[in-house]
Amino acid sequence: MSTSLPPRSLGVGRVLIAVYAILALAATARSVVQIIEDFDAAPVAYALSALSGVVYIVATVALVRPGLVWYRIAWATISFELLGVLVVGTLSIFDQELFPSDSVWSFYGSGYLFIPLVLPVLGMIWLYGRRPAVTTDQVVAPA
């Protein structure tokens, strides 16, 4: 049994990867500045910004790299991203004391034009369209 993966860095994939790369840079840079300048003011928010930066970096790399393992890593990071945006977005609305300062995922990514909310959904749709095609080289008869 072998698997074949369509290339992920062509066409719309390039745009998706570019947006992930920009978000990775923005989230990471923002978190570094926040942590250096004022970590004590909002440690949860700033730590989550750092986490989101790491998630975006790994997702970007996974989207660029070929192969089944990277395809699965892309799914895992993008799924984690969506879960993070939904959980942090909801918590930031209902427990504003936990988030005295915004993180990338606060208020569902409103500080980033809701791109953190929309991007993982688009990424999942796009990845689904590039799922591995499983082929069998041999037909195995039941024993």
Rank of each mutant, 00 (worst) to 15 (best):
A74R: 06
I73Q: 03
D137A: 06
L5W: 05
L83S: 11
Y128Q: 10
Y20S: 03
V88K: 02
S103T: 11
L48Q: 05
A42M: 09
R30C: 02
A59K: 05
I115G: 04
F99L: 07
Y108W: 15
S49G: 14
A143R: 13
V64E: 09
F39H: 10
F80M: 13
L51D: 06
D102G: 05
G11T: 05
A27K: 07
G111H: 08
S9F: 11
S106R: 01
G67P: 07
Q96R: 14
A141K: 14
M1I: 14
D38W: 06
Y112H: 01
R30T: 11
L98W: 06
S4W: 12
I93L: 09
W105Y: 15
L117F: 12
L10V: 11
A59M: 03
M124H: 02
R14Q: 12
V44T: 13
I125T: 01
L91P: 01
F94Y: 13
A76D: 06
A141F: 13
F39M: 06
D102I: 03
V140D: 10
A42N: 06
I73W: 12
Y71C: 08
Y56M: 11
P43N: 02
P66Y: 00
F80H: 00
I17L: 12
L83C: 10
Q96K: 12
I73P: 05
E81K: 07
Y20H: 15
T90W: 13
L119F: 09
T28W: 05
F80L: 14
Y56D: 03
L48I: 13
V139W: 11
V140C: 01
V55P: 00
L127Y: 01
T136R: 15
S92K: 08
S52M: 14
A18M: 11
W70N: 08
W75C: 08
P100I: 11
Y108A: 06
A141D: 15
V61Y: 13
A47P: 02
E97Y: 10
V33G: 06
A24W: 07
V118Q: 02
E37S: 12
S101F: 02
L119P: 07
A45H: 05
Y56E: 04
L63D: 04
M1T: 11
G84N: 10
R14T: 06
G111R: 09
G89N: 03
Y128D: 08
I22P: 01
T28V: 02
L86R: 05
T77W: 00
I78H: 07
F39K: 00
V44P: 09
R8V: 12
A42R: 03
A18F: 09
I57D: 00
L68D: 12
T136A: 14
D102K: 13
T90P: 08
L63Q: 10
D102L: 09
A133E: 15
F107P: 02
L10Q: 15
A24G: 10
L48N: 08
P142Q: 10
L98T: 04
G84Q: 04
V54K: 00
I17S: 08
R8T: 02
D38E: 09
E37V: 09
V121G: 05
S49C: 08
W70G: 01
M1L: 14
G109W: 02
A45Q: 00
A143F: 12
A18Y: 08
I125Q: 06
A50H: 09
P120D: 04
V140N: 13
A74F: 01
S92Y: 03
R8M: 12
L16Q: 04
S9L: 07
F39E: 05
L119M: 04
I73F: 11
L122N: 03
